[in-house]
Amino acid sequence: MAWFEDFEVGQTAAFGRYVVDRDEVLDFARKYDPQPFHLSDEAAAETHFSRLAASGWHSTAMTMAMIVANMGNDGDVGGSLGAAGIDELRWLRPVHPGDILRCETEIVTVTPSRTRPDRGTVRTRVTVLNQDDVPVLTFIPTALFRRRPTAAEA
C-alpha cells in the first residue's frame, strides 16, 4: 500500500512480467484499433512492422495492468486516487505476440497539492522493455495519492 509520503524523487523500481498473447492482440485490435497490421500477418508483412504488431494502445493497457498489479495485493491500491493524465507517451518499437514485457520506473516529481492538503501528485517516468531489454514504450503519468492519515485521523 503506497501513500504520497512513500515517494521520493529519484526512487526507482523494476517490476512486472506480461506475456503478449496473440489472441489478445487480435481481440483488442478488432475492438479498438482495427488497422490491418494489428489484424493480419499478411498485412503486417507489407509494412515496417514485418509481422503482426500489438496496438500501441494495447501495449499501454498491458503496462497499466503491470502497474496496478505492482501497487498491491487483492486490489488494494492504498492511497492511489487514479491519475490526472499522462505526458510524453511514445511507442518506440513494435510489440509482437510472444514478447515478454516488464516495467522500469523513476519518480521525477513529488508535489503536495496547494489546494487539497490531503493529497499530492507523483510524476513517474515509465519505461517498458521487452525480453531483449529493448525499450518499447515510455510515458510520464501524473498520479494522485492520498497523504497518510495521521494518528488523530485514523
Rank of each mutant, 00 (worst) to 15 (best):
V68A: 07
Q35N: 09
P94D: 07
L89V: 15
H48F: 13
A43L: 10
A2W: 12
D133G: 01
T121L: 13
G85K: 08
R146V: 00
E5K: 08
Q131T: 04
M1H: 12
P97W: 07
D99W: 01
N70P: 00
H58C: 07
G56Q: 10
G82K: 07
G98F: 07
V25C: 12
K31N: 09
H96R: 13
T115H: 06
S59N: 12
A43T: 06
E42A: 14
T127M: 06
F15V: 08
Q11R: 11
D23V: 02
H48R: 09
V68C: 02
E88W: 00
Q11A: 13
A45F: 05
T142H: 06
A13S: 14
R147H: 12
N73C: 01
T124D: 03
H58N: 11
G16I: 09
M64E: 10
W91H: 13
D33C: 05
F139Y: 15
F7E: 03
R147V: 12
D76C: 00
R102K: 15
A29R: 02
E24M: 11
E104F: 03
E104D: 11
V134T: 14
F28M: 03
G56Y: 08
G16Q: 05
G16D: 03
P97C: 10
L144N: 03
F139V: 04
D74E: 15
R93E: 15
E24G: 04
D23L: 05
A143P: 00
D133S: 13
D23N: 14
T111R: 15
A143T: 14
R22W: 07
V9E: 14
A43S: 11
G16W: 01
A2K: 15
S113M: 03
P34Q: 08
V122Y: 03
A14V: 14
P112V: 02
F7I: 04
H38F: 08
D23H: 12
Y32P: 08
P34H: 05
V77D: 01
V122N: 00
V134H: 13
W57N: 08
H48T: 10
P117A: 03
D6C: 04
Q131V: 04
G98D: 08
G16T: 06
A45D: 06
T121F: 14
M62A: 12
R93D: 04
G56L: 11
V126W: 13
K31I: 06
